[in-house]
Amino acid sequence: MTTTTKFEDAAPRGHAQAGMRGVMVPVLIGTLTGAIFVTVFLTLFHAPTPHRLPLGVVGTVEAVQARLDAQRPGAFTLTSFADAQRATEAIQRREIYGALLQNEGKVLVAGANGPSVTATVSQALQGQRVEDVLPSSAGDTAGLSTFYAGFGVVLAGFLFGQISYGMAPRLALRSRLLSIGIFGVLNGVLVALISSGLNALPGNVVLLALVVALVATAVAAATVTIIRLAGPVGTTISSVLLLILGNATGGGTLPVAYLPEWLQWVSGVLPVGVGVRAIKGVSYFQNDGLVVGLLVLAAWIAVCAGVLFLKDRRVQLAG
Rank of each mutant, 00 (worst) to 15 (best):
R93W: 00
Q126Y: 00
A18Q: 14
T217F: 10
R170T: 12
L290Y: 08
A216R: 02
S195T: 13
V240L: 08
N247M: 14
I163L: 12
T33L: 15
R228A: 14
L125Y: 08
V269L: 15
I96L: 05
V256K: 02
L198Q: 09
G166E: 10
V205C: 00
I227E: 04
G234N: 05
L245W: 05
A248F: 06
R52L: 15
N187E: 07
V40M: 10
G166V: 06
H15E: 15
T217C: 09
G275P: 09
A168H: 13
V266I: 15
F45A: 01
L294E: 04
H46D: 13
P50V: 09
S195H: 01
G150Y: 01
K280G: 13
A168E: 10
T3D: 10
M20P: 15
L53M: 13
L290F: 13
L78R: 02
A156W: 01
V185G: 02
A82F: 06
S283W: 03
V27L: 15
S164W: 07
T225C: 10
R72M: 09
L159S: 08
P26A: 12
I91N: 00
Q162H: 09
L229M: 11
T60I: 08
Y148I: 14
T249H: 03
R13A: 14
A66F: 07
F158T: 11
P48G: 06
Q316L: 14
A192T: 11
V185S: 01
A168K: 12
I163V: 15
Q92N: 14
Q92G: 03
A11Y: 07
R129K: 10
A222P: 00
I237P: 04
F41W: 14
R13K: 12
R13M: 12
G181Q: 04
G30W: 13
R21P: 00
Q286Y: 08
L186W: 03
D312T: 10
I244S: 04
Q128V: 00
A248R: 04
M24T: 12
N199F: 06
D9Y: 14
G289S: 05
S145Q: 11
V153S: 01
L201F: 04
G56S: 06
R174K: 09
I194P: 08
W262S: 15
R21E: 10
R52A: 15
A213F: 02
T33M: 11
T31P: 05
A149Y: 01
A209K: 07
H15Y: 12
T225L: 07
A230D: 04
I29A: 14
G161H: 01
G56A: 06
G111V: 07
R129A: 12
G98A: 03
F151M: 13
D69S: 10
T3M: 11
Q126I: 00
A99E: 04
N113M: 07
M24Y: 13
L159F: 13
S195M: 13
Y148G: 04
G250S: 12
V211F: 00
P255S: 09
L229I: 11
F37W: 12
I279R: 00
T77C: 01
P48I: 10
D9A: 15
P73M: 08
A302L: 13
